[in-house]
Amino acid sequence: MNQHQKPTEESRTEVMEFVLLGFSDVSHLHWFLFGLFLAIYIIILLGNGTILLITKVEPTLHTPMYYFLGNFSFLEICYVSFTLPRMLVNLGTQRRSISLVACATQMCFVLVLGAPECFLLAVMSYDHYVDICNTLNYSLLMNHKVCTQLVTGSWISGIPVQIGQTFQIFSLSFCASNQINHFFCDISPILNLACGEIFVNKMMVYIVAVLFVLVPFLLILISYSKIISTVLKLSSTTSRAKVFSTCSSHLAVVGLFFGPGIITYLRPKSSHSPDTEKVLSLFYTIVTPMLNPMIYSLRNKDVIMALENYYINNSFE
C-alpha cells in the first residue's frame, strides 16, 4: 500500500513514540561513533565558546563583524545542543526511542534555531558589502542600534513560522511504522511516516525553505557579486588580496551550511534517499558548527592577536 494512502482502521495505530534509527545499520561501530561525536561536540563547545568569549572581552573585536560572529557562535552552540546530545545518548545506550512530544520539541528548536543561522550569515555578508563598497558611510549604516536590530530580527524572525510548521506536521496522523530513518527528528523523515494526504504540508515545507534558506542565500550572492565587482576595480593587488582573504572565511561557512541545506530541503523528493539525507544533515548540523571557529580563527589575524592578548593578560593576573 502506498504510504500516503489512508490506512484502514485496523492498520492504523496511535503513535506515542518514535524510534530514531540513526546509525543502526553500523551498530557494531556504535562505540567508535560515540567517541567521535563526543569529541566533535566538545570541539564545538570549546571552539565556539572561545569565539563568543573573545568577542565579548577584547575591545579590539568590538566591531559589527565580530558582534555578528559572536552571536553566530552562540547560535551554533544552541543549535548543535538539540541534536548531538540526544545522538550520543542513543549511541551509548542503544535505546533509540523518543516520545512524540520530545520529537516535536527537538524539531521545533532545530527549525527555530536554523532560521537565524541563515539570516545571520546574510547579515554578515551585508556587513562585508557595506564595509567594502560603502566605506565612508560604514559607521553610520552599521551603528550599534542597526546591528542590534539586525541580530534581534535574525533571532526572532523564524519563531512563529517554525512553531506553526512544527504544529502542522505533528497534527498529522501517523501510520503503523514509527521508525525514523534519521539521527534526529527532521521534517522529511517525519512526513514519510504520515498517513493521508500531505500535499499541503509538503508545499508549506517548500515555501518556508524558500523564505528562510533560499532568500538569505540569494541576498548573500547579491552582496558578494557587488563586493567582487568593487574589489576588481581596486588598483592595488595587496588590497584585493586582503579583501578576498577577509571574505573567504565567511564564504567557506556559507558553502558548508547552505549547500547541503538547499539540496536537502529544495531538491525533488523523488531523488532523495534516507542515507543521502543523513550525510547532508551532518554537514549543516555538525560539520559547520565544528569548523566555524577554526575557519574564522586560523584565517583571521585579528582573532589570533586578540586570543594572544587575552591569554597574556590573564596569565599575569
Results as ranks from 00 to 15, higher is better:
2 N>C: 05
6 K>G: 01
10 E>M: 11
15 V>A: 05
18 F>H: 10
22 G>V: 00
25 D>Y: 06
30 H>V: 02
33 L>W: 10
35 G>P: 02
38 L>D: 09
39 A>K: 06
39 A>D: 04
47 G>N: 09
51 I>P: 01
53 L>A: 10
54 I>K: 12
54 I>Y: 11
62 H>D: 15
62 H>Y: 04
62 H>P: 04
70 G>Y: 02
71 N>L: 07
71 N>F: 07
76 E>S: 09
77 I>Q: 05
78 C>Y: 04
79 Y>T: 13
84 L>H: 13
85 P>H: 05
85 P>W: 05
89 V>A: 03
95 R>C: 01
98 I>T: 08
100 L>K: 13
101 V>A: 15
105 T>N: 10
106 Q>E: 12
108 C>V: 07
109 F>C: 15
110 V>Y: 03
114 G>M: 04
116 P>L: 10
116 P>V: 09
116 P>T: 10
120 L>S: 07
121 L>E: 04
122 A>P: 02
129 Y>C: 15
129 Y>H: 14
130 V>T: 11
134 N>W: 02
136 L>Y: 05
138 Y>F: 08
141 L>V: 13
142 M>V: 04
143 N>E: 14
144 H>S: 13
145 K>S: 15
149 Q>M: 11
151 V>G: 01
153 G>A: 06
156 I>G: 06
158 G>T: 09
158 G>Y: 02
159 I>G: 08
160 P>G: 11
163 I>K: 12
163 I>R: 14
166 T>A: 14
167 F>Y: 08
171 S>D: 13
175 C>F: 00
175 C>R: 15
178 N>L: 01
181 N>I: 00
185 C>K: 03
189 P>Q: 13
189 P>V: 05
190 I>G: 14
195 C>G: 04
197 E>T: 04
203 M>G: 00
205 V>E: 12
205 V>F: 02
205 V>D: 11
208 V>W: 00
209 A>R: 04
209 A>T: 05
213 V>R: 05
213 V>N: 10
215 V>C: 09
222 I>W: 00
227 I>R: 01
228 I>A: 14
228 I>R: 14
231 V>R: 10
232 L>C: 05
235 S>W: 05
235 S>T: 07
236 S>D: 08
238 T>H: 11
244 F>Y: 11
245 S>Q: 10
249 S>A: 14
250 H>N: 13
251 L>G: 12
254 V>C: 15
254 V>A: 15
255 G>P: 13
262 I>R: 07
271 S>V: 03
272 H>N: 06
273 S>R: 04
275 D>G: 02
277 E>Y: 07
277 E>M: 09
286 I>H: 03
286 I>F: 09
287 V>C: 11
290 M>W: 14
291 L>I: 07
296 Y>M: 08
296 Y>A: 00
298 L>A: 05
298 L>Q: 03
298 L>K: 06
299 R>K: 14
302 D>G: 01
304 I>M: 11
304 I>C: 04
305 M>S: 09
307 L>K: 13
312 I>D: 05
315 S>C: 08
